[in-house]
Nucleic acid binder design. Sequence first.
DNA 1: TAGTCTACTTAGGAGGCCCCTA
DNA 2: TAGGGGCCTCCTAAGTAGACTA
Length: 792
Amino acid sequence: MSGDHLHNDSQIEADFRLNDSHKHKDKHKDREHRHKEHKKDKEKDREKSKHSNSEHKDSEKKHKEKEKNKHKDGSSEKHKDKHKDRDKEKRKEEKIRAAGDAKIKKEKENGFSSPPRIKDEPEDDGYFVPSKEDIKPLKRPRDEDDADYKPKKIKTEDIKKEKKRKLEEEEDGKLKKPKNKDKKVAEPDNKKKKPKKEEEQKWKWWEEERYPEGIKWKFLEHKGPVFAPPYEPLPDGVKFYYDGKVMKLSPKTEEVATFFAKMLDHEYTTKEIFRKNFFKDWRKEMTNDEKNTITNLSKCDFTQMSQYFKAQSEARKQMSKEEKLKVKEENEKLLKEYGFCVMDNHRERIANFKIEPPGLFRGRGNHPKMGMLKRRIMPEDIIINCSKDAKVPSPPSGHKWKEVRHDNKVTWLVSWTENIQGSIKYIMLNPSSRIKGEKDWQKYETARRLKKCVDKIRNQYREDWKSKEMKVRQRAVALYFIDKLALRAGNEKEEGETADTVGCCSLRVEHINLHPELDGQEYVVEFDFPGKDSIRYYNKVPVEKRVFKNLQLFMENKQPEDDLFDRLNTGILNKHLQDLMEGLTAKVFRTYNASITLQQQLKELTAADENVAAKILSYNRANRAVAILCNHQRAPPKTFEKSMMNLQSKIDAKKDQLADARRDLKSAKADAKVMKDAKTKKVVESKKKAVQRLEEQLMKLEVQATDREENKQIALGTSKLNYLDPRITVACQSHCTSSGRTKGREAYTPEGSFRELVQCKKWGVPIEKIYNKTQREKFAWAIDMTDEDYEF
DNA sequence: TAGTCTACTTAGGAGGCCCCTA
DNA sequence: TAGGGGCCTCCTAAGTAGACTA
């Protein structure tokens, strides 16, 4: 292996020039238009940020004026469209900026730079490649007769039990503190008995042996999917107008028209691609007469339809208690019948037992197919998967299934092919099911195996930056980004079929900017690209010199729309990773880095002597660090400003109350000094307590405000559900409590230490404060198996 | 080796439920 | 008790990655 001294920078460049065969030219033409679009977008962005403030006010004025003049199709006119677009983009831009700010803030606050884990982790000298034993499957003993299994008795709660439990929960709910109080400050742990009871009844699949690789189940029975209700024609009083004249539409045409009408207030219906696609598909449903008449979407007036649906929605909200209860019961009945299956000898919840109803496709970003008609799925489209010895679900009368399959190498129960992209959709089990839980557990175990050999892998890719092979260098730099920045792999996508988004391997030259020096830092790479769901990834990252030089070479003689890593794709990368560690793919780095970051941040941020509210804030901050790393953004809630203002006024009011209480205390103290009797002393005590109580309440409100502000544009849920090993969280909850015990006043007074212990138990963060009910169900395995010593 | 298909995970938004406050 | 608002659940789009095929 050659050392650094053998490859100085000029040599690297020379190597590349020799190796580069300019394959990228092939892709050049295909990408020209995309590049132009991206460039346009960027320019727009820059322009907008210059004028955003004044523009916003202007456009708001204009908007109000033009509001009166609506399009005939019910959508607002062009100015409104532009205004909406601008507003949204502005919001997006603010979101990005704020995310960046949050990142910087975090770095300052916690010393957490993006991402600190590479440096923070303990050095592992040995080149560790896990042995087969290390990766043996997670075990649970299975009954001997499993192979010939026939369902006899459902072990999990049956319907009656479940109903009883629900009733109990409901009753309990009346006694319990309201849910939202959870968010505020903890009450003593010993009041939280119910979840334990819930969990006791659960099947602990994690204590049993797993099936051999590839076998997903041995018995599977279910009732099939629930289809969307048939179309109900509009009442006669709801009119559609074309070019100002009433027009009665045929049922098919009317149904598709209602899809558009239902979305009239949505930004989608102002987008040109959406309107074009919709109109094209709508016309396909029209009769010849309708086709001849309706030739221009702008002349269509859907207003009455839209109003009708709004009124219906309003009526639903205004339903009486009894009516609402009836609807609820009907839904529960449906869930009971179709929402569960029997997989092996257990009753498992199905995630999505309802077939997606017809409607208009809502692609994200600049999706070229948005607005297309998602057709109604019929039983004849459906493939049923169940075991041979199970009762095959009956199709709706007069219909038949497309196919009945008995494939126990897959986990889905029902599938169909959708018409927009031709992709297959599935009905699968709920995240709380064995089949999903096992996979989840396995995912975190793979990430933990990566922890053992990540140093070796990092050393390897550092070496590969100097390779003579272009492909190897590109692979090494890409892997560095995936590791350092938690970028997604970036599979190749079919052009024109989806929005133009990229991940690491599919980055183009136009998506990065190289700055030899920026803001006092050397070798800064500026990333700016649309990622998954067209969420913008924007980041300025100082990189190692060799990476920087390599990037310069990768970009040499390329057009902005050319691939940055033209010798690389996710297949090549993953194959290489597979050689480094069994089961390793690009995705594992994201899981690993997210989980290790959480663990480190929790250690750094959580102080044992903090109260529960502060500990929750610390947890959320650690969670937030991960969400920022993974670029999990959300649109700020519409009511954000208002709710912050409300919270601020509560804080102000509390401050006033506190000032009054302090004043009262002072005068009570003065009285006590003069009077010197028991009564006034008692008054002083009670005033003191009042001050304390108010101080605590104020602190809670302030913590809440900080948490909410910091969370404005960051989505914590995605990382919590998909990237953070739940065992870290579970261990932390007990760890926070127990570390308090050891860190107490033991050294000074044993008595004090005893008091501290009780206090800590009382103030430990219950898992319910971090995971809601659904999350606890999903992570039941982790909650059950983890103790406070758990290390990711 | 590239292209396609399939099976699965990851993702943000919409909307409704339910709690809190006035 | 009604209305407001926050959180949870549902929904389904959009990714990843392995298997298969030519």
